[in-house]
Amino acid sequence: MRKFLNRLAANAMCGAFAAKEKVCQAVEDLKRDERGLSGIVVAVLLILVAVLAVVMLWGLLKGYITDLWGIITGQSSGLN
């Protein structure tokens, strides 16, 4: 029985080391794989630029739109 348990433990250790090597190799392959990375980066940057453009445009036009809305609704902004 002891011989069987020793073999089982040895096989388990070999299996664990083999699994570790497979995982490490998969991680290294993933690190070196650059397919699709540039497309994702470009998409994120375009979304960021679009959001910043909208925020800047809103900051520039907010006062003008508020004044126009006050004129349309007949409310005074108090800046006359």
Score class of each variant (00 low, 15 high):
Q75V: 14
L8A: 12
I71L: 09
S76Y: 04
W69C: 05
C24T: 08
L30D: 03
A12M: 07
I72L: 14
G70D: 06
V41Y: 04
L37R: 11
L37F: 09
L37W: 03
G63T: 03
D67R: 08
Q25T: 15
Q25C: 07
L46M: 10
A19I: 06
A9E: 10
G15L: 01
D67Y: 07
M13P: 00
G63K: 02
D33S: 07
E34L: 13
L37S: 08
A19P: 00
L52Y: 04
V49C: 12
G59R: 10
T66S: 07
V23A: 11
A50Y: 07
R7N: 12
V27K: 05
G36I: 03
R7A: 10
G78Y: 01
R7V: 08
V54H: 03
V41N: 08
V51A: 15
Q25S: 15
N11W: 10
M1E: 15
E28T: 07
A12F: 02
L79E: 13
V41H: 06
G39K: 08
G74H: 09
V42R: 10
R2H: 04
S76T: 13
K3S: 05
N11R: 15
L52G: 10
A50P: 01
V42M: 09
L48D: 13
L46V: 06
A18D: 11
L48C: 14
G36L: 04
L57G: 14
A50W: 06
A9Y: 02
R7D: 12
W58D: 09
R32E: 13
I47R: 04
S76V: 07
K62D: 14
L48W: 08
Q25G: 11
F17N: 04
V42H: 05
E34P: 01
K31Q: 14
I71Y: 09
G39W: 03
D67H: 06
E21M: 06
K3E: 09
